[in-house]
Amino acid sequence: MDDATWQAEQFERQRPQLHAVAYRMLGSRSEAEDAVQEAWLRLSRSDDDSIGNLGGWLTTVVGRVCIDMLRARQARREDYVGTWLPEPIVNVDDSDDPEQRTVLADSVGLALLVVLETLTPSERLAFVLHDMLRWSPFFGQ
């Protein structure tokens, strides 16, 4: 297996986690996908040998990209009409157990969204990563 194939496989394993971080940071599925794609581009241009922990490196890159995107929003002074809510993610997978559904519902509560909107981009990243990585199988508990 060549380096490019290995790199692509490793990235695809990390993609759900990266997308979750970006979505929680940005509140938009399309912007989250843009942030994940930017992480892929940066990975493809990087030196594989210098990356010791690929999951951590990619999460850091996605976090920084999201911070840049949030700061760009502030610079453009984007204002939302009415109450800001993230785009919903519809999941029709019926194999989820009730516990998983409860965890998911708690993770996107309205109170959390209100708190996230009051934070600076850097504080928002710290909050999201702390919340997500606490339960992540990639980083342990």
Rank of each mutant, 00 (worst) to 15 (best):
M1K: 10
D3T: 01
T5S: 12
W6P: 01
A8D: 14
E9C: 14
E12D: 15
R13L: 00
R15V: 03
P16L: 02
P16F: 01
L18F: 10
H19M: 13
H19V: 04
V21G: 02
Y23H: 01
R24T: 04
L26G: 06
L26Q: 08
G27H: 07
S28K: 03
R29Q: 01
R29S: 00
E31K: 15
A32N: 11
E33P: 08
E33Q: 14
A35L: 07
A35D: 07
E38P: 08
A39S: 10
W40E: 10
W40Q: 09
L41K: 13
R42L: 08
R42N: 02
S44T: 11
R45W: 01
R45D: 03
S46P: 03
S46A: 10
S46L: 05
D47G: 01
S50N: 11
G52P: 00
N53G: 00
G56P: 06
G56R: 09
G56K: 08
G56M: 06
W57E: 02
T60G: 14
V61L: 02
V61G: 00
G63V: 02
C66A: 15
D68R: 15
M69F: 10
R73G: 05
R73Y: 06
A75I: 06
R76L: 15
Y80Q: 04
T83V: 02
T83W: 03
T83D: 05
P88M: 00
P88D: 05
I89P: 04
I89Y: 02
V90P: 04
N91A: 05
D93T: 09
D96R: 14
D96T: 12
D97A: 11
D97F: 12
P98G: 08
Q100K: 09
R101P: 00
V103I: 12
A105W: 13
A105T: 10
V108I: 07
A111Q: 12
L112R: 09
L113C: 11
L113E: 13
L113V: 07
V114G: 14
V115T: 09
E117C: 00
T118Y: 04
L119K: 04
L119R: 05
T120S: 07
T120G: 04
P121H: 01
P121C: 01
E123W: 10
E123D: 15
L125Q: 03
A126W: 06
F127V: 03
V128L: 12
H130K: 09
M132G: 08
M132I: 13
M132V: 12
L133Q: 12
R134T: 10
P137W: 09
P137T: 13
G140Q: 10
G140A: 09
